[in-house]
């Protein structure tokens, strides 16, 4: 059995965009806190980007004991080369025992790159974490085979143990303004020619609301049952009363009714909202694979035999054009009475 005495402490990588932390990083401070408490070590937030001082303060308020911050022009926006250089430099210097990253697009870009450079194990998309205090080994639980199977993985022989976790799996702790902690500023220069990719342009998605599907608490999805692209407007209305995001089945995307960014499913996004409402979606396995981790699933479909009803907690059989407007009305009335 390996002993890794020189590797200590739990690190959470807080991904940022334009000076704002991505929520998932702050969420991961919760399981991080538990892991740190269990093995009597520190919880340290690692922030690379802009506005790092403020973000470090937030991280500490959400449970971190300390923070390490890296800024510099090269780190203002994400690039694989800059961020992997900075993060591996930090890891080699400080030797954390565990490193958690949010399984965002960039998180899943960065984590395997650094795991490979550090010649250590990475477990992706974890849904549960546990710690064996004696060995200091984390037990990472994650889905495989499109969610049909769960696997528990460990990394007993290498350090740091790295894992990525999806947004929404954990919830942020209570924000405690009174918490204090040291913020270490690390200067990690990098030659410009080391950065082999250049962002030319950022194109926001076509829809006007910017709620990220993967971070949304409520998602209302539309499918072929809508019959016409303009009927997505009722999906939007239902999403609006819940303050949620609009999703879609593959059929609607393939028909050109809505952009692929909204697609939930095997070749789209995997989501885990608190509430998922599937409207006019038959429930093909590829779609269900993308949303079955939702806390509550409601399905509205006129076909009583639609497979979606097998996974729905509440299945409403009927005409969605009759049901949804009344549903929206009722929720609005409830909001007014509150």
């Amino acid at each position: 059995m390996h002993t890794f005495e020189s590797y200590k402490h739990i690190w959470i990588f807080i991904e940022c965009q334009a000076g704002t932390p991505k929520k998932v990083g702050l969420e991961l401070l919760s399981p991080g806190r538990e892991l740190a408490n269990k093995c009597g070590e520190k919880l340290i937030a690692v922030i690379i980007g802009e506005n790092t001082q403020q973000i470090a303060k937030d991280a500490i308020s959400y449970g971190a004991d300390e923070a390490i911050a890296v800024t510099g022009k090269a780190y203002h926006s994400y690039s694989t080369d800059a961020y992997s250089h900075a993060l591996t430099t930090l890891v080699e210097k400080y030797k954390p025992s565990v490193l958690l990253l949010g399984a965002t697009g960039n998180g899943r870009d960065l984590a395997p790159r650094i795991a490979c450079r550090l010649k250590t194990g990475l477990t992706a998309d974890c849904t549960a974490l546990a710690m064996d205090e004696e060995s200091g080994n984390v037990a990472w639980t994650r889905p495989a085979f499109g969610g049909n199977l769960m696997a528990t993985i460990s990394c007993p022989d290498c350090r740091p143990q790295i894992g990525t976790v999806r947004p929404g799996v954990f919830r942020c702790a209570e924000y405690d303004r009174s918490r204090t902690g040291t913020v270490i500023e690390e200067d990690i220069p990098i030659e410009p020619y080391f950065i082999r990719t250049k962002v030319l342009e950022i194109i926001q998605s076509m829809s006007k609301e910017e709620v990220n599907l993967e971070e949304a608490k409520v998602i209302v999805s539309g499918g072929r049952g809508l019959g016409d692209p303009k009927n997505f407007v009722i999906i939007q209305q239902l999403a609006d009363v819940f303050g949620g995001a609009v999703g879609s089945s593959r059929a609607a995307v393939d028909a050109g009714w809505i952009s692929h960014a909204h697609q939930v499913g095997q070749t789209g996004k995997t989501v885990q909202p608190q509430l998922y409402i599937a409207c006019g979606i038959s429930g093909a396995i590829q779609h269900v694979a993308g949303m079955s981790s939702a806390d509550t699933i409601i399905a509205i479909n006129k076909d009583p035999d639609a497979p979606i009803f097998k996974v729905a907690d509440y299945g409403v059989v009927g005409d969605l054009f009759e049901i949804i407007p009344v549903f929206v009305e009722e929720i609005r009335r409830l909001h007014e009475t509150l």
């Binding site: 990394c155 509440y314 009927g318």
Partner: peptide, 27 residues
């Protein structure tokens, strides 16, 4: 470096509630 300690089938969702009233409105 990563070792699979165990695999298991996730708990299946229990059967949901079916709503089908006389009209869409009532449902």
């Amino acid at each position: 470096p990563t070792k699979v300690k165990k695999t298991f089938v996730p708990v299946q969702r229990k059967k949901g509630l079916r709503i089908m009233e006389n009209s869409g409105r009532q449902s």
